[in-house]
């Protein structure tokens, strides 16, 4: 009698657990936001490149000791030519790059919202899709207002009063990913979020030259406190995260299907 009771209770508990896993697995749509954010981040990397040919021979830059001060002779003679370099100065990320991030972040957040809407309608699990859009827009607005106290200027410039290390867009991605942790409700996304936050904090606090004792690639420095690896490292982490989450989700669904759920 007691054995039968145990078996029945264990069986019910196991069914409850399997159903819980199935719902969580169905809600697991994290891989696409990760893939989109990683694309946005990695595609931005070449834009940080200050083309050598566009800089007159008279301009020479060097780092000063272990501090990330780039001093340039002939700085004022830098041409503002070329679509990638337009508006670039050695001390700011530049207008063009700012608009790349603004447009990119808005577009990615809208695509993510649409993705959650389509998938939740198709599956029959309602998920909130607006928090990511509202958060991204609000953060962009805050960054914009903070960076232009007196006049209208694009955000993320070195003169910004907040996050002036040039990592503002990455912090917006960090917050966006944390917003997406809620609908996911998985330990993996929490662990991933912690790791990504740590990486972004690391690259914005300790640029390559100091952290890795590496002086960066010639020309790959656009900001006194910003190296191209600042976007490459988080971008690679996001790609790996997207691949891992996608593979794990696929594996979970396969196992649940095998068990008849």
């Amino acid at each position: 009698m007691t054995n039968l009771l145990t078996l029945e209770a264990e069986d019910v508990l196991s069914s409850v657990d399997a159903l819980r896993r199935r719902v969580r697995s169905d809600r697991n749509l994290h891989w696409l936001p990760l893939a989109l954010f990683s694309t946005l981040t990695l595609v931005s990397a070449p834009l940080y490149y200050r083309w050598q040919w566009s800089i007159p021979q008279a301009v020479s830059c060097y780092r000063s000791g272990g501090h990330y001060v780039v001093t340039c002779a002939g700085y004022d003679r830098l041409p503002a030519s070329g679509i990638l370099t337009q508006g670039f100065t050695l001390n700011s990320l530049g207008t063009w790059l700012s608009f790349y991030w603004i447009a990119g972040l808005i577009m990615v957040s809208l695509v993510i919202a649409q993705w959650y809407r389509t998938r939740s309608n198709r599956m029959g699990l309602r998920m909130h899709r607006w928090p990511i859009v509202v958060t991204t827009m609000s953060l962009l607005a805050i960054a914009w207002i903070k960076s232009s106290p007196g006049d209208i200027r694009p955000p993320f410039s070195a003169s910004s009063h907040v996050w002036d290390a040039g990592a503002t867009p990455l912090w917006i991605v960090v917050i966006g990913l944390w917003i997406l942790v809620w609908p996911e409700r998985s330990i993996t996304s929490v662990v991933f979020g912690v790791g990504f936050s740590a990486i972004v904090w690391g690259v914005s606090e300790y640029p390559a030259a100091g952290f890795l004792r590496w002086d960066g690639l010639g020309g790959w420095v656009t900001n006194s406190n910003f190296d191209v690896y600042t976007v490459v490292l988080p971008g690679i982490y996001l790609v790996l995260g997207a691949l891992f989450v996608s593979a794990r989700c696929h594996d979970q669904r396969r196992r649940l299907r095998q068990r008849g759920y």
Binding site: L19, V23, R27, M123, L125, R126, M127
Partner: peptide, 13 residues
């Protein structure tokens, strides 16, 4: 269990 995990769940699901 499903409703607890899923929040708002469709009849078909």
């Amino acid at each position: 269990t499903i409703v607890q995990e899923g929040g708002k769940v469709d009849f078909g699901y």
